[in-house]
């Protein structure tokens, strides 16, 4: 049954299976294993980012297109829920309306961007999405009447979700279901066509697949899932603002997670997001100790300053692109 659930996507390594099982179990029982608000926050963030990174992997790892607009769709989901819940009567109707409106907007935007720029080179698409995403970020901070500007929006959520436990299991369940759905997509005939486009676009086209159509569909799918991830994150935080959704720094985080976890493997998203979010929250304490022990040495304390954690993940990122293009998952599979 598990094989069916995973759509027959083989792990290919005992160690990988063990790690994944540990992460999933830890997330499933997080409220009971790790007491405290902060730990639960970290667990919920891992769930949301697993989903977000997996949807990005569909683009980067499976289709071979680099988009810098993924945070834009993440933000649309967050703002959709936030605007609906802060303007309409708090309840399921508002939640549904906000989510659906956000999905519709994301679909339209991703379709337009795809149609406009997926015909040409990967580089062109990357540049266009960067420009559009930065424009959207400015737009969100300018339309302060609608979006709350730089301050963002704080809102109330439906009664049933107010206990943290209920909200957590909504986030966990939805993330799990959508992740399994993404696994289904990449292991379907459609997913195989995407892979073939990544490997050899010319040949895929010659075999009769209209690559533009497939790429556009993948782009739209990725955008829709990112939108849902944004909506979930907003529900968990009960807040949406530019810094939690649209910031370019989050785009960088997603890239780091995909590449370090392993591009084109889906499971890499789980590992990458888990490592990254945990590092983000707990690595700084370790670096602080290291930095203080190095006091007096020139430059070293600054290099290990807690705020410089991104430096080391960046180095890891560059090394993985060169030496482990399939990331942690690829390494584990190679070892067996």
């Amino acid at each position: 049954m598990i094989t069916t659930l995973l759509s027959g996507d083989r792990m290919g390594s005992r160690a990988l299976t063990a790690i994944l099982a540990a992460i999933v179990l830890a997330l499933a029982f997080a409220p009971f294993i790790f007491p405290g608000t902060r730990a639960l926050d970290v667990a919920a963030k891992v769930c949301v980012f697993v989903l977000l990174v997996a949807s990005y992997d569909l683009l980067l790892g499976y289709t071979g297109i680099v988009s810098f607009a993924h945070t834009m769709f993440f933000g649309i989901g967050g703002y959709g829920v936030a605007i609906a819940l802060s303007r309409m009567e708090v309840g399921w109707a508002a939640l549904a309306a906000g989510t659906l409106a956000a999905l519709a907007l994301s679909l339209a935007l991703s379709f337009l961007i795809g149609l406009f720029s997926l015909r040409v080179k990967a580089i062109f698409f990357a540049m266009i999405t960067l420009a559009v995403a930065s424009f959207f970020q400015i737009l969100a901070s300018q339309l302060s009447g609608l979006t709350g500007g730089e301050d963002g929006l704080t809102f109330r959520i439906p009664e049933l979700l107010r206990p943290r436990l209920a909200a957590y299991y909504l986030v966990f369940g939805a993330a799990l279901a959508l992740f399994l759905a993404l696994l289904r997509v990449v292991n379907s005939p459609f997913g195989r066509v995407l892979l073939s486009i990544r490997e050899n676009e010319f040949r895929a086209e010659a075999l009769g697949y209209r690559t533009v159509v497939y790429r556009t569909i993948a782009n739209c799918l990725g955008a829709l899932v990112a939108t849902l991830a944004g909506a979930l994150y907003a529900l968990w935080l009960r807040y949406t603002g530019p810094n939690t959704t649209l910031d370019f720094a989050i785009m960088i985080d997603i890239l780091l997670m995909v590449v370090i976890g392993g591009m084109g493997t889906m499971y890499g998203a789980v590992i990458g997001a888990a490592i990254f979010v945990v590092a983000q929250n707990y690595l700084q304490a370790g670096m602080k100790a290291l930095s203080e022990s190095l006091k007096g040495a020139p430059l070293l304390p600054e290099l290990f300053h807690p705020d410089r954690w991104l430096l080391w993940l960046g180095v890891l990122f560059v090394l993985s692109v060169y030496y482990f293009p399939r990331g942690i998952v690829g390494q584990l599979r190679a070892v067996r």
Partner: peptide, 12 residues
């Protein structure tokens, strides 16, 4: 693809 990734990493 690698160029975009690697130069972004270099930028970070």
């Amino acid at each position: 693809l690698k160029q975009i990734l690697i130069t972004t990493g270099g930028m970070i």
